[in-house]
Design a protein around this nucleic acid. Structure first.
Length: 215
DNA sequence: ATCCCGAGGG
DNA sequence: CCCTCTGGAT
């Protein structure tokens, strides 16, 4: 297991690699952010950004989406993976916002997760992006990076990853580090062809040292 | 553990 | 072809 000192050293280097890391979903209102994040499951942000303009043009707010026809919503997001489940989820989410929450987003994690399609990861992202609540959403990238750095055992759950990151990263850095870990995973430490040959973090990386011994 | 499910890349 | 992409619900 990596030491806290070495992990924070690696994080500092990643900070220098991606100083401007931020969320890449397009949205205008917290409601639209929520919908975009629900849609982003198992799908690239690019794919979501391609579909949401048409979706939000027709259904810009919770009231409109709550009254939408399922087939019409499906047509808007057809190019996105898992589109049938997601169409149902975002309509029901909009209906619940209107009927139970006065058309406003709940601002706490527990309540947000009552909405269909919203789990811990999505709630974390919405709270962080829309309201500035410190948090670390563990997605596929954050999980992969954490395991390659040997921050947690390979069989650790995403919740265990989140807890370890929150324990070792100062709270004031949670949001920024979260974005930077995602950028690092998306553009450098990719799932398929990680760029270990030119990786400034490899001296701290169990995975990198195992796969590229000559560095 | 399994299902949902399309686009993009290698 | 196969794998991956800011997962969640059953």
């Amino acid at each position: 297991m990596i030491t806290k000192k070495n992990f924070l050293a690696a994080l500092k280097i990643i900070d220098e690699m991606f100083p401007d890391a931020k969320g890449e979903l397009d949205w205008e209102t917290p409601f639209q952010l929520l919908i975009a994040v629900i849609l982003s499951a198992q799908t690239t942000d690019k794919g979501v950004n391609k579909a949401t303009p048409a979706l939000f043009a027709k259904f810009p707010d919770a009231e409109k989406l709550a009254q939408a026809e399922l087939s019409e919503v499906e047509a808007c997001i057809k190019t996105i993976g898992l589109y049938r489940t997601k169409a149902k989820n975002i309509i029901r989410t909009a209906q619940m916002l209107v009927s139970d929450f006065n058309s406003e987003l709940p601002r706490d994690k527990k309540t947000l997760q009552l909405l269909p399609g919203v789990g811990r990861k999505t709630a974390n992202v919405v709270l962080g992006e829309a309201y500035g609540v410190p948090g670390i959403a563990v997605d596929t990238h954050v999980e992969r990076i954490s395991k390659r750095l040997d921050l947690v055992p390979q069989k650790a759950t995403v919740l265990e990853v989140e807890e370890k990151l929150m324990k070792w990263i100062p709270e004031e850095d949670w949001t920024q580090s979260h974005h930077q870990l995602i950028f690092f995973g998306r553009y450098h430490c990719t799932a398929k062809k990680p760029q270990c040959e030119v990786c400034p973090v490899i001296e701290y990386c169990k995975y990198g040292k195992q796969h590229y011994k000559n560095v």
